[in-house]
Computed example of a mutant assay.
Amino acid sequence: MIPLSGPDLTQREKDLVLEVLDSGILGLGPKMKQFEEAMAAYVGAKYAISCNSGTSGLHMIVHAMGIKDGDEVITTPFSFVASSNCILFERAKPVFVDIDENTYNMDIAQIEAAITPRTKAILPVHVFGQPVNMDEIRALATKHNLRVIEDSCEAIGAKWNGEPVGILGDAGVFAFYPNKQMTTGEGGIIVTNDDEIADLCYSLRNQGRGEDGLWLSHVRLGFNYRMDELSAALGVAQLERIDEILAARTRVADLYLEKFRAVDGVILPEIDPRAQMSWFVFVIRFAEGLNRDRIMQRLSERGIGCRPYFTPIHLQPFYIEQFGYQPGDFPVTERVANGTLAIPFFNRLTEEQIDEVVQAVQEEIARDRAEN
Rank of each mutant, 00 (worst) to 15 (best):
V219L: 09
D329S: 15
P331M: 15
I284M: 10
R292V: 08
L221F: 00
A253T: 05
L257H: 13
P269F: 01
G303A: 12
N291Q: 12
R261D: 10
D293K: 12
Q238H: 01
R298E: 13
P308T: 13
G328V: 15
L257V: 08
M227H: 03
S300K: 11
D243R: 12
S278W: 00
G208Y: 03
M277F: 06
D212P: 04
G222Q: 09
G222D: 12
A233Q: 06
P269D: 02
L315F: 05
I295T: 09
L290R: 11
A247C: 02
Q322L: 14
A248I: 00
H218P: 00
D272S: 10
I245K: 13
S203L: 00
F286E: 10
P331N: 15
R302H: 10
F318P: 02
F260N: 03
N224M: 11
G210L: 04
T311K: 13
S231A: 12
L257M: 15
G235V: 03
L246K: 13
G235M: 03
R261A: 10
T311F: 03
I295H: 02
E288R: 13
P308Q: 14
D293A: 12
E270I: 02
F282H: 08
N291Y: 01
L315M: 14
V252L: 09
P308V: 12
L290E: 12
D272A: 10
L268S: 10
F310R: 08
G222R: 08
G289A: 02
L204N: 09
A237D: 07
R302W: 06
S217Y: 04
G208K: 09
Y225C: 03
F286K: 05
D243W: 02
M227P: 01
E229K: 07
G265A: 04
Q326C: 09
D254Q: 14
A253S: 11
C306A: 11
R251Y: 05
S231Q: 11
A275E: 10
E301K: 15
D272F: 02
D264T: 11
L290F: 05
G235A: 05
P308E: 14
G328F: 11
C306I: 09
Q322I: 08
L214I: 03
I242A: 10
G222H: 07
I267M: 10
F260E: 06
Y319Q: 13
A287C: 06
E244I: 05
D212E: 14
Q207C: 07
R274Y: 00
E229R: 07
A232C: 08
H314P: 08
S203F: 00
F282T: 08
G265I: 02
E258G: 06
A233K: 05
K259I: 07
A232G: 04
E258T: 12
